[in-house]
């Protein structure tokens, strides 16, 4: 008899929910929470003594663990494929703009930004076997833009290793699904939310998709931003200019085979703007994306890559 099993909790400063369909429980919350603990110990800038924080504090290099090695490898790949729009060495800028582990009240001026830019650029990182090296001591990395997606993959991998083949893993709005809902063999439905006005509004569904075996993530600055002189400053910093991204895209939803890919690209697509985003997507046929954006007249519209339509669940079937 196939049952529905659920585990929900808090991790990485947000919530997670795991649903699977099987004839036995197979996985428990303690196991999941210990996976998140090991991820935090490696990748969290919010946890003192984490591997990433030790690298940031180091003068030259550290020995990576499996988590950090995988995330760094993928980040470097995406750095190249996005023309540098996705760059984990952006952390000193993120901190200066007040989105680091410690929020600040101040804003950097352009001289400060210029100074910090000297420490930014993934070309200042090198990987030699398991060692991660920096060419100058002030280089610091922040993998928040990709770690959540990676975590989803790690949890999904754990479920699969336990013999679960019908599941949904969701961490802070990043999702991976496989198989069907049993026993009725129904596809899993995922809502894409309408960007909210305030930082904490409950989600409202704009579109419903079903992606089969794959991952979907969404990036948007509508929840995390600062306000300065009536202008909203995005938490996504352009690593080239050093300033918060000011683009027409409000949210970018990416479907990819795995969550680390989807999550790794979503910020960059948002930073690239609609035209730039489609250029990047043209080179990645395994990825589809859906954008909600602001038109020049202020109204909100949406658009998507050509292959995205096949995921959309018709209104009648929702």
């Amino acid at each position: 008899m196939q049952e529905t099993y659920r585990i929900a909790g808090q991790a990485q400063g947000t919530t997670y929910a795991i649903t699977w369909y099987a004839d036995r429980e197979l996985v428990n919350k303690t196991q999941i929470d210990s996976i998140f603990k090991s991820l935090d110990a490696s990748l969290s800038i919010y946890q003192s003594g984490s591997l990433i924080n030790r690298f940031n504090a180091s003068q030259k290099s550290i020995e990576m663990d499996g988590h950090l090695a995988r995330v760094v490898e993928k980040s470097m790949e995406i750095f190249c494929q996005t023309g540098g729009l996705s760059d984990i060495t952006v952390y000193p800028l993120v901190r200066a703009w007040g989105f680091g582990a410690k929020p600040t009240d101040t804003m950097p001026d352009s001289a400060t930004v210029r100074e910090i830019l000297a420490c930014v650029g993934s070309d200042k990182l090198q990987v030699r076997d398991r060692r991660l090296l920096k060419t100058i001591p002030c280089v610091q990395i922040d993998v928040n833009g990709i770690a959540q997606g990676y975590s989803v993959d790690v949890v999904a991998g754990f479920l699969e290793a336990r013999g679960i083949s019908n599941y949904m893993v969701e961490v802070g709005g990043e999702i991976r699904t496989k198989g069907l809902k049993l026993p009725d063999n129904e596809p899993m439905k995922i809502g894409i939310e309408t960007p909210s006005v305030t930082g904490f509004d409950a989600p409202v569904i704009r579109e419903v998709i079903s992606i089969g075996d794959g991952a979907v993530t969404t990036s948007g600055s509508y929840r995390k931003f600062r306000e300065s002189g009536g202008i909203r400053l995005s938490h996504i910093i352009d690593p080239k200019t050093g300033f918060p991204v000011q683009r027409e895209i409000i949210s970018a939803t990416v479907v990819a085979p795995d969550a680390i890919t989807a999550d790794g690209f979503d910020n960059a697509l948002l930073a690239a703007g609609i035209n730039g985003a489609f250029e990047i997507l043209n080179r990645r046929p395994d990825m589809q994306a859906y954008f909600i954006y602001r038109q020049p007249d202020g109204t909100v519209a949406d658009t998507a890559s050509a292959g995205f339509g096949r995921y959309v669940v018709a209104k009648a079937d929702r």
């Binding site: 947000t14 919530t15 929910a17 709005g173 439905k189 809502g191 894409i192 409950a202 989600p203 939803t253």
Partner: peptide, 25 residues
């Protein structure tokens, strides 16, 4: 500010993708 928890998304879908909601909210 304490937001009301309104689960208007539930029931319709199995999951929701969106910008991360900080757990403190």
């Amino acid at each position: 500010i304490y937001p009301e928890t309104t689960n208007n998304a539930k029931g319709v879908v199995d999951g929701v993708t969106g910008a991360t909601i900080a757990v403190t909210t």
